[in-house]
Amino acid sequence: MHGLYNFVRGPLAWVAFILFVGGTLYRLIAMLVIARKKDNVVFDYFSLFYGLRSIFHWIIPFANRNSRQRPIFTIVTFAFHICLLAAPILLLAHVLLWDESFGISWWTLPEGVADIMTLIVIGGCIYFLWRRLTQPEVKFVTFASDFVILAIVAAPFITGFLAYHQWLGYKFWLILHILAGEVMLVAIPFTRLAHMIYSPFTRAYMGSEFGSVRHARDW
């Protein structure tokens, strides 16, 4: 058990981080290279001002029409995404690891808050799962891979939650948690989770087209 723990915490974590960073860079560079080669117009019409204007209207809840029309979804998705990013980064246990390994640390969340945020992420996953299973327009475009991705996202949070509360053996859940986290990291650049990488670009491009060419709003 201990050997396994050391392995997932040590070499495997390195592999995961390298794949995550390397994969992300690869996807970004590949996108820019083929855009240069075959979609040069993307650069020709790009406008930083209008790109950012559009991004702002979409990262602020209720700042665009679609989010106003779906208040529940908007609240869930914003809470989900904020917690998804903030909880792992600001979790005390994670920061301690960084401190231990590299001597860097930053502000952390009170543990109770982090716990609630974890539950929000898990709740969000359940909500998305419910949408995929029941909402016809979502169900129609749902593939098996969508469930897998959802599971990949949910897993580190569920295992982390269990590990933190130390039900049925801390070590077991901890190892699973680390593994799940690593799987998720690696999955980001190589699955539809890549929307995390691409979305600022797609949004900014549409914002540029709407803003500087069409003189219209896109929110």
């Binding site: 327009e137 969508d146 539809r192 929307h195 691409y198």
Partner: peptide, 8 residues
Amino acid sequence: DTCVHCGL
């Protein structure tokens, strides 16, 4: 690649 099949 970016479409998350959300139906929004």
